[in-house]
Design a binder for these strands. Structure first.
Length: 648
RNA sequence: GCCGAUGUAGCUCAGGGGUAGAGCGUUUCCUUGGUAAGGAAGAGGUCAUGGGUUCAAUUCCCAUCAUUGGCUCCA
């Protein structure tokens, strides 16, 4: 007999050789029907794996992440089988479960797969699924496994197996299909009821662009057709919130092929929104002791040689600009920090002067690969809400935490309540990717981790994600399509002060090197506004709205009164517009609603006589008639209610 | 940059070897209205660009450019 401990702490005795599914059945038949995966002593096992010793067993259903993982991983096997049946000479490589579904990377040889083929593959997959084939795991020797794939001429699987230890190699079989696999499947293919293949994409073998490009088929599957339908509806919903679509509809920004790809053009409403965001941050930064500086859009090549950016990114950047006669080389500014370092150098500093905090909304230009451009989130010219803090090593901890406070204030003011943070450290295996001495790196990394702990942020540590000159703390949020984007960033840098030979005089009358903090709460104005658009679906906080009030006259007869209402609101610094067109009120309301204008004021004969407005709120409808002054107070109070002050 | 898809009116999109269509928007006229589309008429397109096949190309083929889903990259 063996003792199986369940997650609730209860311990049950079973015959050795009992399977997780048997245990599930012993709890209840109904529960067992939903169990699709299991972990024994924290190791993923099949639901049919015999258990031979005491241990902790966790049973997973579709509701658990682990269950979904097993479900989608198993679906990838079904996909592979369908592909093999339809395209006999292909070479399978890897096919994992991902956050939303699964994919399989396949070498199709000379065949090209297109979207039209997906339907046929889906049909084949459903046919296989309906066969209710059981998944079973079988151990094999390394030699046998190698032999199997060498015979097939599948060099990818051979490469995978060569990197595995003998004795740990398993195959998974279902129906007549076999694949190298470490396990974690659902009991049988019949549990997969709904399948949708989403897209085809190219993907490099092992993620290395020097390797052969394979064809990746993305799909998702569900235990019920209804869940698939809901998922597809969710995707539709996400599309409606896409910042590229909303940006066009709300006339915020555009792109022009003639101006160049990745170079956004801000339309009046978008520019106004941007300006308001900038002013919001400027106000908080002023309180926090920042001073604004301004630097040019280009800089001498020498500047970036000193900073190290040229060596690191020069080759992949826009090519240097040559002056006509002297042949001097200038670069489009890819970073503001070298300029700010030169500002720091304009005069000698005492430790009593520090910290110095230089801030700039600095527009930078970077050559991003054409395939990488994406709306406003990945562009070639963008404006950073940049600042650099030059401080003594003693001040680092305090300054870093102050920056965290500022970032949290910004996020809180804009409704980003769900964010995570990432501490990005060096890749210990690739020291050549970084500049600066390892001791300083350690100091910087330790400073960030301690600040994050003190501030009780929810964080993950990612090795190898640091900037080349220093470690960083990034703030990430998710967009409407579930993609994670980096917003704010705070970086500790001992290296640039070294390279620019920055100094201050200490209390000991000796010269010392300051520490630098790079920081940008928004990250870039472009990206931030994109994410804000998707986050709010275009319903920005009232204080940011390009147009807060639409005054809709019932007919042209009330044009004069609507103009009067507009003037009075503008006196109270409320952004309003009038709509006196020869259209019905229903149409004017509809358009204002679609333009997401927060308040609509309907004015007609009654209102003109009484000096009132009939107020309609976006998304809510009629909220009644009131004196104009009352409405003005109402909206001003609403704006005040959502604007928090930044307190240092 | 690489692999796939897409590019038709200002916008959203249909069409298809014989030089183009809808809805919305826009213009003009009628209508002067009470909380999500009042009515009528008109204007508007070298069908992304450049080649090729063909009696004939917007349609088929190739290339380029842009957009897009991924991969790689991201100071």
């Amino acid at each position: 007999m063996i003792a199986i401990t369940l997650p609730d702490g209860s311990v049950k005795q079973f015959e050795a050789g009992v399977t997780p599914m048997d245990v599930a059945k012993s709890i209840s038949e109904g529960f067992a029907r939903n169990v699709i995966s299991a972990a024994f002593n924290k190791v993923t096992v099949e639901t049919s794996t015999p258990l031979t010793q005491d241990g902790n067993l966790v049973l997973y259903t579709w509701k658990d992440d682990q269950g979904k993982k097993a479900f989608w991983h198993s679906s990838a096997h079904i996909l592979a089988q369908a592909l093999e049946q339809l395209y006999p000479n292909i070479k399978l490589t890897i096919g994992p479960a991902i956050e939303n579904g699964f994919y399989y990377d396949v070498d199709f040889g000379d065949t090209t797969l297109s979207d039209k083929d997906l339907k046929e593959i889906e049909t084949k997959m459903l046919e296989i699924a309906r066969g209710k084939h059981e998944f079973s795991i079988r151990e094999t020797s390394k030699a046998e496994a190698l032999d199997y794939y060498k015979k097939q001429g599948n060099e990818y699987k051979v490469e995978l197996i060569e990197n595995l230890e003998d004795g740990t190699i398993t195959f998974c079989d279902h129906d007549d299909f076999t694949d190298l696999c470490r396990g974690g499947h659902i009991p049988n293919t019949g549990i997969v009821k709904a399948i949708k293949l989403m897209s085809i994409a190219g993907a490099y073998w092992r993620g290395d662009e020097n390797n052969k490009q394979l064809t990746r088929v993305y799909g998702i599957s569900f235990p019920k057709q209804k869940e698939l339908t809901e998922y597809l509806e969710l995707l539709e919903e996400a599309k409606k919130r896409d910042h590229r679509k909303l940006g066009k509809e709300l006339e915020l920004f555009t792109f022009s092929q003639k101006v160049g790809q990745g170079l956004p053009l801000w339309l009046p409403k978008g520019a106004a929104l941007r300006e308001r965001l900038e002013n919001f941050l400027k106000k908080a930064q002023k309180k926090a002791g920042y001073e604004m500086v301004v630097t040019p859009h280009i800089g001498h090549k020498e500047l970036y040689l000193t900073s190290g950016h040229y060596q690191k990114y020069g080759a992949d950047s826009f090519q240097p600009i040559l002056t006509p006669h002297e042949g001097e080389e200038f670069l489009l500014k890819p970073m503001n920090c070298p300029h700010h370092c030169e500002i720091f150098k304009t005069k000698p500093w005492s430790y009593k002067d520090l910290p110095k905090r230089f801030a700039e909304f600095g527009t930078v230009y970077r050559y991003e690969q054409s395939g990488e451009l994406h709306g406003l989130t990945r562009v070639r010219g963008f404006t950073q809400d940049d600042a650099h803090i030059f401080c003594t090593p003693d001040q680092l901890d305090t300054e870093f935490k102050k920056v965290i406070d500022l970032v949290l204030y910004v996020f809180g003011s804009l409704g980003f309540d769900n964010f995570t943070t990432q501490v990005s450290l060096r890749d210990p295996d690739k020291p050549e990717k970084y500049i600066g001495n390892p001791e300083l790196w350690e100091k910087a990394e330790a400073a960030i981790i301690s600040a994050v702990k003190d501030k009780e942020l929810d964080y993950v540590i990612e090795e190898g994600e640091a900037a080349f000159y220093g470690p960083k703390l990034d703030f990430m949020v998710k967009d409407a399509l579930g993609r994670s984007w980096q917003l704010g960033t705070i970086q500790v840098d001992y290296t640039l002060p070294e390279r620019f030979e920055l100094e201050y005089k200490g209390s000991d009358n000796e010269m010392h090197r300051p520490v630098m903090i790079h920081r940008a709460p928004f990250g870039s104005m472009e990206r931030f506004i994109a994410i804000l658009l998707e986050h709010t679906g275009g319903n920005f906080p009232l204080w940011l709205m390009p147009e807060q009030v639409a005054i809709l006259s019932l007919s042209e007869k009330y044009e004069k009164y609507s103009q009067k209402v507009l003037n009075l609101l503008e006196n109270d610094e409320i952004r309003a517009l009038t709509d006196n067109r020869n259209e019905t009120i229903g149409k004017k309301i509809r358009e204002a609603e679609m333009n997401k204008i927060p308040y609509m004021l309907i004015v007609g004969e009654q209102e003109e006589q009484d000096g009132t407005v009939s107020v309609r709120k976006h998304g809510e409808g009629d909220i009644g008639t009131m004196p104009l002054e009352t409405f003005s107070e109402l909206i001003q109070d609403a704006i005040k209610a959502e604007s928090k002050e930044f307190n240092v």
